[in-house]
Design a binder for these strands. Structure first.
Lengths: 211, 211
DNA sequence: TTAAAACTTGGAGTCATTGCAATTTTTCAG
DNA sequence: CTGAAAAATTGCAATGACTCCAAGTTTTAA
């Protein structure tokens, strides 16, 4: 059997708890909601909540956890003759141009950001996620370029490319928080991406070209 | 009176508590030491500890808090004809070449790093500090270049320059953690700074030239 | 059908952090 | 020098995240 009843139920329960928690957080703020309340509202015990989520922050950032592979994926999937940075810029532009919710370009993102902004614990968790994103990217860059173990370049490049992504996402978050229209923010961020590209060196833009 | 008995005593108490705490943390790790123990060891009540330090993390990072002005200071003090990034690179090279404890180049830094490494709460706090460093730098860049309010460039430049500094400091931390010799790490980081400079664009290296 | 494996739960305990009211210290005007 | 007023210290109680543990319950699989 590919999928037992148990697995299905677990995924469902986990999703439900996260949804209930997210709703409460958006409504009243991260600190104002206790784990006990969440457990109550989700009809489970506090222990069950902790059974699924290692910490309170994870109840809110469960979805975001999926993006730790994003940069690694984008770079792995770069086209012939395209560098790592170029691939990331292209994918970012595609997402931004498409006003994609995957990069935060949807009306409800403001509520999401507000919760994060006022909760240091959530911001920390996002930093940790960004670190993972970069670590994964570095790993991919090492594989793709066959760099020596002690070569610092993949690490530096991952830093630069991670900065590109992080900066774009941060600006989107900042603007959406101001209740700007997604379409408007999209246009603005496309301009920002141009600015960013202009201030990167050829070295960075030409690193890890495929083919 | 420029300095009453009260003020002197307070500063002394604060310093003592922080010293005692740091000692315990280095000896047994951040999580393994409770605030109550620290208070005991410092002959004060737990409330007094919280009177001086907003959170447990601040007991350890009290000293590091002084460096939030570092980049802003370095850039403000740049020479005629020198850009912001060049000033930061120069100051970093000076500190590193001098094997300065201000950048972590001293034997005991490994113990310090070990405590930080295994305590997520401390790492978060350092990220927050780095954010402040960058925010201050951005402010200085805005002042010095007279950039328009809605100009994103100072923010991007602060990001790049902050990245330079952060990367150097991170590498120093990583290497010192491995119990490498400060002198050896110094040499290595000087090479790293050359690598970093080589991968920055002219745009970045020529931003905010004085004069 | 049923024993083992996997989940859930209640309860007790640790620890950071906060709020409050009572005490002690230090400062300072008279 | 002396008696408040101001500032600092402390004990006590409470909240809330998180962990451990020892029962139950439910699901699986033979």
């Amino acid at each position: 059997m590919a999928e037992g009843l148990r697995e299905r139920k677990k995924r469902q329960t986990r999703q439900y708890i996260s949804d209930v928690a997210t709703g409460l957080f958006v409504e009243r703020g991260f600190d104002a909601v206790t784990v006990a309340e969440i457990a109550d509202a989700a009809n489970v015990s506090v222990n069950t909540v902790y059974n699924y989520f290692p910490a309170k922050e994870d109840l809110f950032l469960d979805r975001s956890a999926g993006m730790v592979e994003r940069l690694a994926r984008w770079v792995r999937g770069r086209a012939e003759g395209e560098s790592a940075a170029q691939a990331v810029l292209r994918e970012l532009r595609d997402e931004v141009r498409a006003v994609s919710p995957r990069v935060g370009l949807f009306a409800g993102y403001a509520d999401f950001m507000r919760v994060i902004q006022e909760a240091p614990a959530l911001r920390s968790r996002l930093w940790a996620l960004a670190q993972e994103v970069e670590a994964n990217l570095e790993q991919v860059l090492r594989e793709e370029t066959g760099a020596a173990e002690d070569d610092e370049l993949p690490s530096l490049m991952a830093g630069q490319i991670g900065w590109i992504h992080g900066t774009a996402i941060r600006v989107i978050g900042r603007e959406m928080l101001e209740r700007r229209e997604p379409g408007e923010v999209s246009r603005e961020v496309l301009a920002l991406l141009d600015d960013i590209e202009e201030l990167l060196s050829e070295r960075v833009l030409a690193y890890a070209v495929r083919g």
